[in-house]
Design a binder for these strands. Structure first.
Length: 305
DNA sequence: ATCCCGACCA
DNA sequence: TGGTCGGGAT
């Protein structure tokens, strides 16, 4: 058998109502917290995956203004969706591609009706365990417990749950009040995002769990390790971003026209030359973001539509 | 430098 | 299980 997991408080009633009351009293207002439209929720969740919420608000409004329904998004050109993503600095163009593809799935495989269960939602491209439960919760109030980095940090500190995904999942499920996934998942993530950040603000934010919190009692606010990303400056990701933004501006370019706009030190036969650029473009083509055409001897690159 | 409501693919 | 995927704000 596995190791013993620490017990949550015996009576979960007061723990649950304390958090829900705290949330309803003092949570931040975000526009997606005022809708139950699964399409609008999905857009907000995908945008929020690795981007600060404050930067998502304008993008979310603009996106829904341009593509108000899942049908409208499915009918859009992928290049336009990726273009919007870049314009609003949302990062990770793959997420725009996934969202566009998921919209197509909803229209063709589900007849335009959004799936409502976490299991069915996970079939959508780009929708993993977190996003599936988030949409099921916030749109249909019918999700399981979400486990993201915020929730892990909260459980680790408050209830001494070991840094282990299975343990986090079990503890999160046990805490979730039956039939209240909408407010609960919002609340526990809000707690992690506002009061129980890397540097905690227990008293400042009036954390509702102080009387039960292991970390608050011991003063040890260690948090689970989050893998640190390699530097962005000079990275392959930065170069991919430059390819996409350059192709948006020029529609299509030959290899040696694109190269210098991606790296100032581009030299056709140098270390960062045609061969390097072809490799970069091959990955972008595999990701469905660009097209590389070899017509009559010359290679031309453009964004995929 | 580090953070930010993950998911995909090998 | 690990490598990869953007970019702005602080």
């Amino acid at each position: 058998m596995g190791e013993e997991t620490p017990a949550l408080p015996a009576d979960l009633g007061p723990v649950r109502s304390a958090l829900i009351e705290w949330y309803e009293r003092s949570h931040r207002e975000y526009p997606w917290r005022r809708t139950e439209d699964p399409y609008e929720i999905l857009v907000s969740e995908v945008m929020s995956q690795q981007t600060q919420l404050g930067r998502v608000v304008d993008a979310w409004r603009g996106f829904l203004e341009r593509w108000p329904t899942v049908e409208a998004l499915a009918a859009a050109d992928r290049a336009d969706v990726v273009g919007f993503w870049s314009d609003h600095s949302l990062g990770y163009n793959n997420r725009a591609k996934y969202l566009h593809e998921a919209a197509g799935q909803v229209c063709t495989e589900h007849d335009g009706e959004f799936p409502e269960t976490p299991e069915d939602l996970e079939e959508l491209m780009g929708v993993g365990p977190y996003t599936a439960n988030a949409v099921a919760s916030f749109a249909f109030n019918d999700g399981n417990a979400v486990v993201d980095t915020n929730v892990k940090r909260v459980l680790y500190r408050a209830f001494d749950v070991p840094d282990d995904d299975t343990a986090f999942g079990r503890a999160a499920e046990e805490l979730l009040p039956d039939g209240r996934s909408r407010v609960w998942n919002n609340a526990i993530m809000e707690l992690g995002g506002v009061a129980c950040e890397k540097t905690p603000g227990c008293d400042r934010e009036g954390c509702p769990w102080r009387e039960w919190c292991h970390a608050y009692q011991t003063g040890d606010f260690t948090a689970p390790d989050v893998p640190t990303q390699p530097a962005f400056e000079g990275s392959r990701r930065q170069m991919r971003g430059r390819v996409v933004s350059t192709l948006r501006e020029y529609d299509e370019l030959p290899l040696d026209g694109l190269g210098p706009r991606v790296r100032v030190d581009y030299a056709p036969d140098g270390e960062y030359g045609r061969e390097w650029l072809r490799g970069l473009l091959e990955d972008l083509a595999d990701d469905g973001l660009v097209e590389v055409d070899s017509a009559d001897g010359t290679v031309v690159v453009r964004l995929r539509r």
